[in-house]
Design a protein around this nucleic acid. Structure first.
Lengths: 337, 337
DNA sequence: ATACGGATTGGGAGCGCTCCCACCGGAAGC
DNA sequence: GCTTCCGGTGGGAGCGCTCCCAATCCGTAT
């Protein structure tokens, strides 16, 4: 009976029987393995079509000890960190690369207590073939978990501390230096920074880049004024900066969200951008284009970051040992500085 | 030997042996099933701890025919649709609800040809326990695939055409009507709309809401000026609208991205917002807060949408038959209108 | 003809877990 | 005192697939 939509899912045994071959042969055909005669191969393919057979990935996973899935773990402190459009772009890139290797993407938001627990179990139960790990804070217990894991782990952005074996990062120091130099080249002499969380490596690296540039120009760096990478956080920081250092005429915000917040706070304080205070950001997310004035910022290849993480992971799963990767950034000038 | 980090993953049999019980008893303990004496239960728990045992989810899945995972499928035409921060918020909500049910989240971007194919296989191979399906366009083949699937499917937003059995949507018509009425109440008499893609139900519904409000006020609705829900698309549409209907003094953009684009296009055309042209959006995403002026818009509970989809799915997997849900929207007034 | 090497083939033993079921002993019911 | 019942227990048969290995087949070299 030809019935592509039979009630029950057909099994490999049924396909084999239908094709008049053994299970082994049918399996070889499905896996494109050699040692199958042309005639039997075609018979199996016909049976597969007629039965509407689809291989059961779970059974395959059990037998091969490979799940066919990779996890993207987003750590952080609060699940809402994931609302940052940054991650969406990472996912677009990672998803495309995983698709090429025919791996599925499992997404884990590990910010809650329970979420973290589940990720730990995932690591230990071999529930995926490998993981991509992002948004780690200093002393995040997941770093330890990852080290002990018996599976490949690729870091997206380095964690604070010793660099892991496999990671993909962007050149945070270089990007921050370049955009700060740009600010200075536009005649700004009192350049402060709204830095990101300093318990993240990205926050620290961008502050270092800022500091390098200011010192190299013979100016005095301001102490790090920390915010949480969000728009309201950036606005609040800008207000604080204004109150404490009214002479400031240039601000490097360590990401675009905070840059947008700074622009808003400045406008609300009656200062014009860039005439009174020039503002630059980092990331080149969509928000940088809609502020008024639009933000000069540092473009980082976010989708590429995701793509390269996934490719690196696939390479490791395939038994290779790729070298870490640092992606370049690029200055994007708009009118906020 | 106490060794929580033994080379090989320990199995349930080993736990059972270590605890001096049978595999069955050990299994019952792990599943919190009855018919286990207090003494043996504790022995097993001790063995689990000493061996650092973690249950193999793949084997469990094979035996129970339940994978412990749910998929979120984002259709659309182009994978970059996922870059819209809208989805990130859905995921935050869905992830939290799935976490409560101890299900993992599999994310599938089904915009590419290959991606769609993989989703179809996922449906047919029972690779997940259920799926949440979003961003369907008219005549999307995935609708058919979903109907034929032998697993629960919850739609996020209704597809064009007959309503599916299970879905969660927001009140697009009501929200669009309300914000358009607001525009009119502010004295606007030439109110146009930059509508979203009309091959999506959300695009159509929002246009209907706009049209209802305009007609109810005794004004003449403008024909739908279609754009693709993106910022540049909105800007281009605004420019076109301005060229064709210079008398327009109010615009309902069917989402905030397009609203932000409209505001930018208006500024670049030398018109002031809201004095010359008032603009309102839909979604209440972060972008609505950073445009200048910030956008009056329709708040929709996006994380709740994700959460309710996930809860509905869990309910179905548990054998229930929940009723579809339509979430309310809320007008958020800022200064763009 | 006869033997030999390689390509094919099918049987069977898992992968690690769940769950049905038969079995045990003691408390309750008669 | 003897059934009846039930909590507790362990054995065993799968779940659907992969993969090792022994068996078979063929063409060809001897």
């Amino acid at each position: 009976m030809v019935d592509g939509v039979s009630r029950r899912q057909s099994t490999l045994d049924e396909v084999a029987e239908h094709a008049g071959v053994s299970r082994s042969v049918a399996s070889r055909v499905l896996n494109n393995a050699p040692h199958v005669s042309r005639a039997k191969r075609e018979a199996v393919e016909r049976a597969v079509r007629q039965l509407g057979y689809v291989r059961n990935p779970t059974a395959r996973a059990l037998a091969t000890r490979q799940t066919g899935a990779a996890a993207l773990v987003v750590a952080g402190e609060d699940p809402s960190i994931f609302a940052d459009p940054f991650f969406a772009q990472v996912i677009v890139g990672a998803s495309a690369a995983l698709e090429e290797a025919d791996l599925h993407l499992m997404l884990c938001l590990a910010a809650s207590e329970r979420g973290r627990k589940r990720v730990e179990d995932l690591f230990r139960s071999q529930g995926v073939d490998g993981v991509m790990l992002m948004a780690l804070r200093e002393d995040d217990p997941l770093v330890r978990t990852a080290e002990e894991a018996r599976m490949p782990v690729v870091f997206g952005g380095r964690p604070v501390g010793p660099a892991p074996r496999w990671y993909v990062d962007v050149d945070n120091v270089g990007g921050a230096r370049e955009v700060t130099e740009y600010l200075i080249s536009r005649g700004r002499t009192h350049v402060a920074t709204i830095c990101g969380r300093l318990d993240t490596e990205a926050g620290r690296a961008r502050y270092r880049g800022y500091r390098d540039a200011v010192l190299a120009a013979g100016l005095a760096p301001y102490p790090p004024w920390e915010a949480d990478f969000t728009e309201p956080g950036g606005a609040a920081a800008m207000t604080g900066l204004l109150a404490n250092y009214p002479e400031v005429d240039g601000v490097f915000a360590a990401n675009d969200n905070m840059g947008a917040g700074a622009v808003r706070a400045l406008r609300e304080a009656g200062r014009t951008v860039p005439a009174d205070v020039a503002v630059v950001g980092f990331d080149d997310l969509a928000v940088a284009g809609v502020t008024d004035p639009p933000l000069t910022t540092v473009h980082q290849p976010i989708a590429a970051l995701g793509r390269e993480m996934a490719r690196m992971l696939v390479a490791i799963v395939d038994g290779q040992d790729p070298t870490p990767l640092i992606l370049p950034t690029r200055l994007v000038t708009r009118s906020s500085a």
